[in-house]
C-alpha cells in the first residue's frame, strides 16, 4: 500500500515481491520495499531471517530469482557489485571490506586509487589521497590520529565510519549497511547511528540492516520486517511503535512462551 502513494519521483531503489532461492533453499520471498533520497530504510529480522540475502540482491552480489528490482524506476538485474556501484549503490558489508594490515588511506581508496601520469608511468597520488582521507573523515566527524596506521588498529566503530565515509566520498546515492552496529558497544553503536544520520542529511538513501529495534527506531524512516525469509510488512515510522516492532520480530506468542518459561516458579 505504501507504493500506491509514491510521487512522481521514483525512489532510488525499489523491490517488488522480490525473492531468492539457493538451490532448494528458499532464503527470501515476496519482499517489497523502497528507499528514496534522504531516507533511511531499516531492515529488521532475527538471525537467518534473510537480511543478508536481501542486501546481496540490492548490491549486485546475488541475482534475485523472483520479483523485480528497480533503480530510479528502471527495472534492473545486477550481474556484479560493480554494476550496482556504477549506479551509486554502495554496500558496506559486515566484514567492512577492508584489508586490516593496510594503512587507512590505502583502504579508503582501494579499488578506486587516484593516479597521476600516463600509461605504465602513472603512479599513486599518495599525498593527495592521504589529505582527502583525512578531510573526508573529518567531514563525517571522525578525527583520526594518523591515516598511515593499519586500519586493523582502529576500533570497530571507527572502521565502520571509515567504510561509510568511503562510500559517501565515492558518490554513493544509496549506502547499504549490513549490521554495522551488531558487534559494537553502546557508545560506538551510537556514533555509527550518528554517521547514518549525517549521511541521510547529506541527501543519501540509507539501507540499514540490524536485528536491534533500539538501533533502528531512532534513525529509521521506514521499517522492513523480515522473518524466516518472508516480509512481515514495510512500515512508516508513524505506523508502528518500537514495542510492536519488537513483538512482530520475535513473534508475540514466542515471547509470551519465553516469559512464561523464565518466570520464577
Amino acid at each position: 500500500m505504501t507504493h500506491a502513494e509514491a510521487s512522481a519521483v521514483p525512489p532510488i531503489l525499489e523491490v517488488r515481491d522480490i525473492g531468492k532461492t539457493y538451490g532448494s533453499i528458499l532464503a527470501l520471498q515476496g519482499v517489497s520495499a523502497s528507499v528514496g533520497v534522504g531516507e533511511v530504510l531499516c531492515v529488521l529480522g532475527d538471525n537467518g531471517a534473510g537480511k543478508s540475502t536481501f542486501i546481496k540482491i540490492l548490491s549486485g552480489a546475488h541475482v534475485h530469482t523472483q520479483g523485480k528490482l528497480l533503480a530510479y524506476g528502471v527495472e534492473r538485474t545486477f550481474g556484479s557489485p560493480r554494476e550496482a556501484l556504477d549506479l551509486g549503490i554502495a554496500t558496506v558489508y559486515q566484514d567492512l571490506a577492508v584489508v586490516p594490515l593496510m594503512p587507512v588511506w590505502r583502504n579508503f581508496f582501494l579499488g578506486s586509487e587516484v593516479t597521476r601520469g600516463f600509461g605504465p608511468f602513472s603512479q599513486l597520488d599518495v599525498k593527495g589521497m592521504r589529505r582527502i582521507t583525512k578531510e573526508e573523515l573529518a567531514r563525517m566527524g571522525i578525527d583520526l590520529r594518523d591515516v598511515d596506521q593499519p586500519i586493523g588498529t582502529l576500533s570497530g566503530g571507527e572502521r565502520q565510519s571509515v567504510a561509510i565515509a568511503r562510500a559517501v566520498y565515492f558518490g554513493a546515492k544509496v549506502v547499504i549497511l549490513d549490521e554495522p552496529t551488531s558487534a559494537l558497544g553502546v557508545k560506538q553503536a551510537g556514533a555509527v547511528l550518528k554517521y547514518i544520520a549525517q549521511a541521510r542529511d547529506r541527501g543519501l538513501g540509507v539501507v540499514f540492516i540490524t536485528h536491534n529495534p533500539h538501533h533502528a527506531y531512532p534513525v529509521g524512516d521506514r521499517f522492513l520486517l523480515l522473518k524466516r525469509g518472508t516480509s512481515l510488512g514495510d512500515f512508516k515510522k508513524s505506523e508502528i511503535t518500537i514495542e510492536e516492532m519488537t513483538k512482530l520480530m520475535a513473534g508475540a506468542a514466542e515471547l509470551d512462551a519465553l516469559a512464561h518459561e523464565l518466570a520464577r516458579p
Binding site: 554496500t91 584489508v99 593496510m102 579499488g111
Partner: peptide, 15 residues
C-alpha cells in the same frame, strides 16, 4: 597487498 591481505574485501571493492 590487498589480495594477499584480504581477498574477499578486495573483490568487494572491485580489485
Amino acid at each position: 597487498f590487498a589480495v594477499g591481505g584480504q581477498v574477499t574485501s578486495s573483490r568487494q571493492v572491485g580489485v
